[in-house]
Simulated assay, not measured.
Amino acid sequence: MVEQPTQPGGSRVVIEVWSDLGCPWCYVGKHRLQTAIARRPDADRFGIVLRSFELDPGAPREPEENAKSFLRAHGGTAADVLRAERQMRALARQEGLAYSLSRLNANTFDLHRVVQYAGAHGRGFEFFSTVQDGFFAGTLNPHDPDTLAGVAEAVGLDGRRAREVLAGSEYADRVRADRDAGLELGALGVPFVVLDRRVAAPGAQKVPVYDRLLQQVAGPVASERVS
């Protein structure tokens, strides 16, 4: 974690979040960060920008069971996967988050291209977060173009354009550029959060840690400034 002096209060703070769809800690960490922001009276000062980061660029395009995907990428046994997943589900539920064990994983490059399209219209984080929440809840298939087009429309984008992006190769350079930028900033994996390009926090931090990081870049909340 890298920290530098606080900026003057009142200005807009951009929070960049490098993430990938099927990363459980990204899912949990995202909600912890949102909780920390929401409980500040100046929450509207903070804007979250989703940055693309493929954890498994070699993943197949055809969806595969979560256990198979994990074993292919990390090794181990099916029992190891089930044990880890159950532990993650318990943690997520403690934080009020849905967590399905019946997820299907696939290559996320095309999804990230749609995220980039959404980001170009100021809806990247909202689009990605909606897809990821539905994916982990087991209520949304992120590998279905019609489903992604529907999410795009739900967050105020053009579903037809989302389908066009999926069918072509637009925004591929931006997906790769995001990952390169994350690596240059020190990301060894995701989630990786950078606040105002001055404070970096790898991993899914707990809410009190995000509280301190927000204070580091934006100053204490009003109640803390009273002497």
Rank of each mutant, 00 (worst) to 15 (best):
P5Q: 05
P5A: 11
G9M: 15
V17P: 00
S19G: 05
S19L: 05
D20L: 03
P24D: 03
C26W: 00
Q34K: 08
I37D: 08
R40H: 06
P41G: 12
P41D: 12
V49P: 08
R51W: 07
E54D: 10
L55D: 06
P63Y: 01
K68V: 09
K68Y: 04
G75W: 05
G76E: 05
R83L: 15
M88E: 12
A90N: 08
A92D: 08
A98T: 02
L101G: 02
H112R: 03
V114C: 05
V114D: 10
Q116K: 14
Y117E: 13
A118V: 04
F127A: 00
Q132D: 01
G134R: 02
F136Y: 07
G150R: 02
V151N: 11
V151L: 02
A152Y: 07
A154N: 07
A154W: 10
L157R: 01
R161L: 15
R163G: 02
A167R: 00
S169K: 04
S169F: 09
R174D: 02
V175R: 09
R179N: 01
A181M: 09
L185D: 03
G189Y: 13
P191I: 13
F192Q: 14
V193G: 00
L195I: 09
D196F: 15
D196W: 11
V209D: 04
Y210Q: 11
Q215L: 04
P220R: 03
